[in-house]
Design a protein around this nucleic acid. Structure first.
Length: 136
RNA sequence: ACAGCAGGCCGGCUUGUCGCCCAAAGGGGAGGAAAGUCCGGACAACACAGAGCACUGCGCUUCUUAACGGGAAGGUGGCUGUAAAGUCACGAAGGUGUAGCAGAAAAUUACCGCCUUUAGAGGUAAGGGUGAAAAGGUGGGGUAAGAGCCCACCGGAUCUUGUGGUGACAUGAGGUGCCGUACACCCCGCAGGUUGCAAGACCAUGUAUAUCGCGGUACUCAUUUGAGUACGGAAUGGCUCGUUCCGGUUCUUUUUACAGAUGCCGCGAAGGGUAGGUCGCUAAAGGGAUUAGGUAACUGGUUCCGCAGAUCAAUGACAAGCCCCUUUUUAUCAGGGACAGAAUCCGGCUUACAGGCUUGCUGUUUUU
RNA sequence: CGGGAUGUAGCUCAGCACGGUUUAGAGUACUCGUCUGGGGGGCGAGGGGUCGGAAGUUCGAAUCUUCUCAUCCCGA
């Protein structure tokens, strides 16, 4: 684990509209309540990082932009602090992934509950990688 | 002191750990509404010789402003309130229309009643019920019975005129019996080209070409057309005139010549493709303090500051302390801290909002 | 982010516009009756609406005005 492993810069964010479209049409998903994860192995990410991630909260479930922003920020914070495990595994397997985290629950949860969910999600994802589900 | 009316301001604070965006040097990083997108501008692209009509919006006065349907101060009337105040309406002059049901009648009214009269017929708005609204009100005279028919007072309207005010208007004097209500339209004045930063400009990527315009080549072959006007069509536009552009009839048939167009090539438009980047993009009708003018909105001067610019989208998470609120006699503990997140930028309006501070005014009660 | 449209019976729509006053209407679905031995289908009758919500104008609002809440569409 190096020093920069708690950062979450622009390089690690999933920005390309094209890859997002591809992720939701071809990627595979699983649940880790209150989060739904959508994953796709990508050949050529534009930046030299193992994972590009994005976070999303439905407008239907939360009308107010303030609440959506708050939940996205909590998810991002939790991902930032827990991602090192995922990075290690991926570098071992020589992969690049595009990942989306969608907030599914209908009510506003505090940071600790979201953190629990995020840890569970990453564990599941790591397990799937170790079973070689994403190697083509 | 309590209750209330009108206005202004604030919109938790501090520290630590780990992070994000812009700049690359320090530094800076959500709001009063960033919201709704209801008005008005700036800015950009496109359109545009001009004139008239229509449509839409606004409509008391004076001022304010880049502009406004906003704001300030003020006027008149209706409604609400004991009051402070709030709210709605208001265009010189004039014209037209509508008012279901009920009711005699919704505006040149006559069912009952009253009066004249043999009857037919006529007069009448005092009384009646209907309705949202019923012919200014009270008293007296008058009359067949009644009525502004006449008179007094009161409430309006209108004309003449004096005074005050920049003005809307206010107020005094005199004249005229002139006297229902509500709404809408006509009319008058002012404003309005359209679309919006996903506007628009540039770069990168780059695959067949339907179609249209311009230029060139070939005139071998095939097809087709032939001056001008009436006329028709298109563009401009909400519509009309006008302007500009295009088409093209002429009794029929044949031959020849000339010129043009299409089939070929190039360029441009369009179409198709791309979904990446740069600019627009933040210094602005800017903000704070102070001062001068003005009742005020606002304007001028001086001085200081340089104040978010993301692009699937930053401005955060966690912890501790303080502050405020709720429960509790108090403290501890526990729970909670409104509405809400920039997206081209400004000026307003409207809507949402815990709690707190503050100025002026009104009413009631008590004391002096 | 910008622009625009629509909310009426369980469902799909009329009626709204410039004109305010009718019992808010049609199709389908539902219930009952009837024709049939029964089903389907036909015929007849019936129930079901605070016209998305709240204020205002008016004697009177689904309709006009203002605010508000949903849903949908278009734009590099």
């Amino acid at each position: 684990m190096d020093d920069s492993s708690f950062t979450f810069g622009k390089k690690e964010k999933l920005c390309s509209r094209k890859t997002i479209d591809l992720l939701f049409s071809k990627g595979r998903g699983f649940m880790a309540y209150p989060i739904r994860v959508q994953v796709l192995p990508v050949k050529e990410l534009p930046e030299d990082v193992p994972v590009q991630a994005m976070f999303s909260v439905s407008k239907k479930r939360f009308k107010r932009a303030v609440k959506r922003n708050l939940l996205k920020r909590r998810m991002r914070e939790s991902y930032r602090l827990n991602k090192h495990n995922l990075y290690n595994v991926i570098e071992h397997n020589d992969l690049q992934l595009a990942v989306a985290f969608l907030y599914i629950s209908g009510d506003e949860m505090d940071y600790h509950s979201i953190d629990k969910g995020m840890k569970k999600a990453i564990e599941k994802l790591v397990a799937k990688i170790e079973k070689n589900e994403f190697t083509p």
